[in-house]
Design a protein around this nucleic acid. Structure first.
Lengths: 192, 192
DNA sequence: CTAGAATGAGACATCAATGTCTCATCTGGG
DNA sequence: CCCAGATGAGACATTGATGTCTCATTCTAG
């Protein structure tokens, strides 16, 4: 195997391990390094060659989660068109990362240090700006702060991801359930 | 100390320990038995005299959480008046237990056994029935299932409890933020 | 006051997860 | 074919939390 081929395979492996770990930890957040290794189909020794320890693994998953969110946000084009439509696009794009996000959301360890990772702050700011744009445009009500709307979006994503895991919500309904509740609420609208 | 007096004091202590533990674990869900004991102002030995182990402590907290929820639900009179008002009452009554609930919500360990505790099922059913009543009365839209609305309520409570802890949401806004978002959503209503 | 009950402090063994190490084996490129 | 790099299997020590135990001290009912 050439040096180029080697690097390439390592990178592929690393990504595969990361995604397997995300899938497992989504279901069982206390899984052992041994279980993570088995889930990825590699030995514990190799797992340690990729990630120095559990902490490093979680940090890598955090980076992955941030990257997926930023990608989803980019694809959702949050500055474009009505804010409500942008929110719907965002929820749709973020669905594949929902499991990983709900895991990270529950890792209090990540939020205990000297403030959250810079990446989360940037995401919070971008999503908050989207809600603020909707408020300025008169689309969104102004008595719910952008900060709270952002937080609520995360909470709904985590709830729905979790409810999807054991079948209380169908996977195909994920985008609708979240976006409709967040935007329109439970109250029935008056028919015009 | 008489046998009667003994039992009484033990019960008081037990409740105090339970509530201290809830307050601590809300902030740091991985707190040690030692930290829990210190937070309650007792020694680790005494803590073990009250609760056989960490598992027993978490189970007791689960019971407490269920009891607090049922109490809140009772006081909210979910069968009375408009469903939307009943939801608002429920959110208001449940606020004091929000921290404990968000801790329990994150303890995946509780949901991994042979289905969740019976108490949660009963609560889910009661809250689901409230949303269903609202749908039948034409108050709530029917394209969001009662199961999802119940799940979303839990998610919003957990998010808001967490956001309250580090000051992103003011404690006094808790009931409004949750009820308004859940019921009305982010979209601005047309002025009649 | 006195005896029994409860507590606090700490020693101690246990246990599970982790991190590190070695070595045999496998694989692919030269 | 041969070798460097990667892997898997497993041994090993370490660490932190846990559960159990003892004993001295404190407190309170009688």
């Amino acid at each position: 195997m050439s040096h180029l081929g080697y690097s390439c395979l390592m990178a592929l492996d690393r990504d595969h391990v990361l995604r397997s770990a995300a899938a497992l930890l989504t279901r069982k957040s206390t899984a052992t390094m041994d279980e993570v290794a088995k889930a990825a189909g590699i030995s514990r020794a190799t797992l340690h060659r990729h990630f120095a320890g559990r902490d490093a693994l979680v940090r890598a998953l955090e980076q992955l989660g941030i990257a997926e969110c930023e990608g989803a946000l980019d694809r959702a084009r949050p500055e474009e068109g009505p804010a409500a439509e942008a929110v719907r696009r965002l929820v749709r794009e973020i669905q594949p990362a929902a499991g990983l996000l709900s895991f990270l959301y529950g890792e209090n360890q990540l939020w205990e240090g000297d403030g959250p990772h810079e990446g989360w702050q940037r995401l919070d700011a971008r999503i908050g700006a989207l809600f603020q744009r909707g408020q300025r445009a008169g689309e969104f009500r102004i008595d719910l702060s952008p900060v709270w709307l952002t937080e609520a979006l995360y909470g709904l994503i985590a709830s729905c991801a979790w409810a999807t895991l054991d079948g209380r919500v169908a996977s195909r309904d994920f985008p609708t359930m979240i976006a409709e509740l967040l935007l329109g609420g439970a109250l029935r609208r008056e028919e015009p």
